[in-house]
């Protein structure tokens, strides 16, 4: 077989069309699906989607149990809310919504175009190799990111994690993970560590091999 390869793989042209609808769809879906950090405070009530109580109840009401795409788990929201005093009056009473079964794994959600959560963008601003390490910035106070995926990235990368690991944890394709990581780095949430790529710096690559060799021998 002839091997014709795109050297810049992973950044190809994606589905840019119909982005807005998809994005909205994606937000609703992923915010329900991937909300895993209960202790995280959601701080900014003015910030768009499902941050205010009214919006939430509206969303909750409109989501029928048969459509698990728009999951707002009320119990969890209330729990979150109790951390931030300001909004107490909105959610003092639990919103009476029948519990919606959390959507099972990824197959169920296949209809959301993967690049929806990146707003249809497919390009990353950093050279993110599979093994490139990412770590959460060591700043004293970091803003809590709005996007759930960024929260997950920050959580994961408290100890350095590779791009591949982040993609696996987020359960998104590599190309999507690259854009998300790139965004997180642009907003100063995470640091992208330098990757010793093959031909760029011969010395560095050789030294890396030496270190790997002695590391393996110590195992």
């Amino acid at each position: 077989m002839t091997v014709t390869m795109n050297t810049d793989s992973g950044f190809g042209s994606g589905n840019e069309e119909g982005a807005i609808a998809d994005v909205l769809n994606g937000f609703a879906l992923t915010s329900g699906l991937r909300r895993r950090k209960r202790g995280e405070r959601r701080d900014d009530p003015d910030d768009g989607r499902e941050a205010t109580g009214e919006q939430e109840s509206r969303e909750a009401a409109s989501s029928s149990p048969a459509e698990p795409t728009d999951v707002v788990w009320p119990g969890e929201e209330d729990h979150d809310r109790s951390w931030t005093g300001e909004e107490q009056f909105v959610s003092a009473e639990p919103i009476p919504v029948e519990p919606v079964a959390p959507p099972p794994a990824a197959e169920e959600t296949g209809f959301v175009r993967p690049y929806a959560i990146t707003g249809g963008r497919t390009k990353a601003n950093y050279p993110l190799e599979l093994e490139t390490l990412i770590s959460t910035r060591d700043a004293a106070v970091l803003p809590v990111p709005d996007q759930v995926e960024h929260q997950v990235i920050m959580e994961e990368c408290r100890t350095p994690r590779s791009v591949a690991e982040i993609a696996a944890v987020l359960q998104v394709p590599l190309g999507v993970a690259r854009v998300l990581i790139s965004d997180a780095a642009d907003t100063g949430l995470v640091t992208v560590h330098r990757t010793v790529a093959g031909s760029e710096n011969a010395e560095a690559h050789f030294m890396l091999m030496e270190r790997v060799l002695s590391g393996l021998r110590r195992l």
Partner: peptide
Amino acid sequence: SVGFKAPRQAAPKTMTSAK
């Protein structure tokens, strides 16, 4: 900007990975 305190880790500043 309600933030959370990121734990100050003793992790080395530069990390290297190989594949």
